[in-house]
Nucleic acid binder design. Structure first.
Lengths: 197, 197
DNA sequence: CAATTATTAGAGCAGTCACTCCATCAATGC
DNA sequence: GCATTGATGGAGTGACTGCTCTAATAATTG
């Protein structure tokens, strides 16, 4: 046998492609993004592209999975805290900051456009589930301590928090002068209004 | 000259195509919807299709314009009322009812996916503007009477109401058990929490 | 009826794009 | 050094799709 791959190099190259794809997807949507354009931005040939990802769709799914993983890793950051409402609002604030990344809103819209593909729908449901699993314990805690309203079951409260950040991204993508920076405070305030009894 | 067209017949045929397209766009997204499939559903040949709409994109834009017109017509329905908050919440409730139309969420996602096309972006901005123009007078009135918070300028309040109904549609499209029927009450309550001082 | 024009269907075309294939290169183990 | 195998680029391909073209038909007017 010869040459066992350098996994770090492989992973780095993968990330270069993913980064380029994120840009092109955000700019042109999923179908509008040609593999040729992604290759150009990543400075690779199409042969290399398909060496790393079997299909264009697999590349999209890989990006989505990356986001879901990031969501899951969020859990650790809040370990040890006891102020449920504060943690939830911090998480919402975090979402607002992510929305400030210029490619984010466009990418989310692009994904929405191919939600009819079962694989994409499944990936998004997985993301929703991850988000919910991260939020749920804090919602439950807040309901126990009375910080958070109890007229809605915890799972539905998490859905509504997702709704807020998702709608936030949509507005940023559509309205010229609706910016993450300026509206962040209102987002947090709206979340608080929603969460408190 | 011979044969002046029957405009009613023409319009009816147009609407058949639009209706078919709405279904196919909602099911498969914009790019995923082939003109052939739309023709099949509308029971017409492709020649007829392009007789009514010069391009597939024009068909999409026609649908969007129809929605914007409908938004504008809403104005009349609330003439004479003086309870600004009540009117705004009725409008939000109305949005929730529209979200219950099965094709609506999918269609909105489909449109999101092609927002990178300038014509679509323009149409959506036009829709946002129409929505805002309908809401603005009531927000102003409510702020004057003290029913509605005054810490945000009227235009931004309308953006946030749009955000809520838009996020609502997104959740319905993504989450299996997030239904317009069940969540309508929460939407109205959330809008109230947002609007009141 | 004849002339004119809108309407309709659908075969075919031109262009595009995801993906394949192959030749070359680079790195490792023996 | 040489064999082996992964990595890479890019020309080529097959399938698909938006749209055009043509020919036939239906409706209307004088």
């Amino acid at each position: 046998m010869a040459r066992t791959v350098d996994p770090a190099r492989h992973e780095a190259r993968r990330l270069v492609i993913i980064d380029a794809a994120l840009t092109v997807f955000a700019e042109r949507g999923y179908d509008g993004a040609t593999t040729a354009e992604i290759c150009r931005r990543a400075r690779i040939g199409s042969g290399t592209f398909f060496h790393y990802f079997p299909t264009k769709l697999d590349l999209l799914l890989a990006i989505l999975r990356l986001g879901t993983d990031e969501t899951r890793e969020q859990t650790e950051r809040y370990a040890g805290r006891t102020d449920a409402l504060g943690v939830l609002l911090d998480m919402v604030a975090n979402g607002a900051d992510e929305a400030a990344e210029p490619r984010m809103p466009g990418f989310v819209q692009a994904v929405a456009g191919v939600m009819h593909l079962p694989e994409v729908a499944a990936a998004l449901e997985e993301d929703t589930r991850a988000q919910r699993d991260v939020l749920l314990p804090w919602v439950r805690l807040g309901q126990r301590t009375g910080e958070i309203r109890t007229d809605l079951p915890p799972a539905r409260i998490t859905s509504w928090l997702y709704l807020l950040t998702d709608g936030f991204l949509g507005r940023i993508a559509t309205e010229e002068d609706f910016t993450a920076q300026e509206e962040k405070a209102t987002l947090i305030d709206t979340a608080r209004r929603f969460l408190t009894p």
